[in-house]
Design a protein around this nucleic acid. Structure first.
Lengths: 346, 346
DNA sequence: TGAATTCACGAAAACGTTGTAGTATTTTTA
DNA sequence: TAAAAATACTACAACGTTTTCGTGAATTCA
């Protein structure tokens, strides 16, 4: 950073004014051919590159998109980031990624730091704690200050902005319906606590599929995972709950999990119980990620098209950024269709 | 961004000078108590936060660390980012993550954009293409301009900077030795092309373990995966190679994979061949990630302690950034020990 | 040849911040 | 009571860039 060449230094070296250097590099017709070439050659030899910070300050825009996700380790979020990157790059935007680690406080801190001039707009998915607390003031405050925000996946109505979501209800409905179609009648649901809206919506889809097929609902067939701070602990508790459910109800012949981590826990539990997949129990889950592809048996999944979500979110955000007439204040919610990827577990 | 309150606006509202506002907020003794309190109260009510861009320009530092990784989808890199984040946050630094997607060009573009004033220093792991091309001019140029760089995992001697690596040779040696200890004598190695140095080093460890145990080396036991642009394709080719190896050599009783994706491919191949793990064939691999934990059987792994690596890299980089005396130009290489996590596959 | 144009460049402001160096007032000191 | 010192502020430069507005000098026109 300290050896960086600036317009001023070049101007001094070449005995011209700063404006002349600046204009030459921008091919301004105001500058004579000879001078322009001389300056451009010198700049090239020095490896001059304009300082982005100075440009940002001057232009009041950074050409950077901030992304805040709860967890990099989740395959789905990684895909979304990839999608965002692609579109951003195509449009000359940078992407910076920050992590909330499912923590409300980290989400607030990251949001505020990035909002202080570092980025032009946000794409984010709420942390679990934020949804639990139902405290969205930081997001709303950011929006109020004129910063465009696009929410994806974990969205809530209390925040007014563009949103990109998966049709969770339908995806869950389709998944459940597939199991029912295969003759399964006692389907165990592995979901989250209700404050995680994707879990809640997927639960709704599951219920609707039961109703539409005139199957009786049974509360004992719905397991809502506890939410300690350690996901390892959560999973071992979930495993135990699954085993218990099977011991209490020998009829269970299918499992629908709202993400692949839960499905992984189910696989382990079934193995312990010596139940064969898919012969005795079929499994389907959300998140078409690594676990689904590499587990034995491989898992049938509801693919959320993370990359598509990222692309959509990025292009919507960039639309907002480019059109200056901020009069436009109608926000839209874009729904990305899910697809079922059938594998060995069904 | 447009409604953001600035010092100037506040100064205007309160009929004082900009300096007075600035100093009040910094609790300067130059300002009278009454004025100071009045200004602080107003600033608070307006939700004033200093503009980072302006600060960066003035201070010639951004308090931001740039991280470039080849792929978010790799669990190992995600862990490293987590580690970096923790240390950075503790020291008041921001972290921005950019992805090279294993592409040389994206690595160069990201490096240059971030280097143009957006960050104070880099932590990065080289893309596969960069290692293949052996073209490191962009990194060296960045270093030459006075930007501190810390390389991790995929490092090469041609770049002079601090480095954080795993003891790949020893990790691979230990892994191979474990299989030998269990009585395995014909161990298949699944590795990368030699230009990926971690693959090369792990291959060395494998060879050394064979030599130290007076076992004969067999080139047919070493499979180097091809490198097309599609990892899906790579994997199906790898699977076929594994099947072929087993058909040609019925003696194979162990597999050592340099990452868990390769081990996943091995699992699928063995299943097709109807070979039981670990009874007929044992498996061990690098990367203690999701696949290893959720596959059936679960995989014994060499844990690289990604979070530790990230923490180490971040603290070394911050050390460089804080000590201004750039006279210090001796660089160090820090080695993080690996640990073997034993699971069902051995 | 004198006036009007064009050419080729420079000066300065602006973005938001901080810190140094003033500068009026008031208070203390001798 | 005059000089010195403290108080409570303001002005201004600087960070690197772009861009508008000047401005001398050279060129063209009548």
């Amino acid at each position: 950073m300290k050896n960086k060449i600036t317009l001023k230094k070049m101007a001094h070296e070449l005995n011209v004014s700063i404006s002349t250097v600046s204009k030459s590099l921008k091919d301004s017709p105001e500058i004579g051919d000879e001078t322009r070439e001389r300056i451009k050659a010198f700049a090239k030899s020095q490896g001059y590159r304009p300082n982005n910070i100075a440009l940002s300050l001057k232009n009041k825009k950074t050409k950077t998109i901030g992304v805040i996700i709860p967890d990099v380790v989740h395959y789905f979020f990684a895909l979304v980031v990839n999608g965002i990157e692609q579109i951003a790059r195509q449009n000359g935007y940078n992407v910076v990624v920050a992590l909330s680690n499912e923590s409300f406080e980290k989400e607030v801190v990251n949001l505020e730091t990035l909002a202080d001039g570092l980025i032009d707009g946000f794409i984010l998915s709420l942390s679990r704690e934020t949804m639990k607390n139902q405290d969205y003031h930081h997001i709303n405050e950011t929006i109020r200050q004129g910063m465009p925000v696009v929410l994806f996946d974990r969205v809530i109505p209390e925040i007014e902005c563009d949103k990109v979501v998966v049709d969770d209800v339908k995806g869950a409905y389709d998944a459940t319906a597939l199991l029912i179609e295969k003759g399964k009648k006692n389907i165990l649901l592995l979901t989250t606590q209700d404050y995680v809206n994707v879990g809640r919506l997927r639960t709704q889809g599951y219920i609707k599929a039961f109703q539409d097929n005139a199957l009786p609902l049974d509360n004992d067939l719905i397991i809502k995972t506890v939410d300690t701070q350690s996901s390892d602990k959560d999973m071992s508790i979930l495993e135990k709950s699954i085993e218990k459910a099977f011991r209490n109800n020998k009829q269970i012949d299918g499992i629908f999990a709202v993400n692949e981590i839960y499905a992984g826990a189910a696989l382990r539990a079934l193995k312990k119980l010596n139940l064969a997949v898919p012969d005795q129990v079929s499994i389907i889950c959300f998140t078409d990620g690594l676990i689904s592809k590499y587990s034995t048996p491989t898992l049938t999944t509801v693919k959320q098209h993370g990359e598509e979500i990222g692309k959509m979110a990025a292009s919507k955000l960039i639309d907002r950024l480019e059109k200056e007439d901020d009069a436009e204040t109608t926000f839209e919610e874009y729904v990305i269709k899910t697809t079922i990827i059938e594998r060995e577990s069904t």
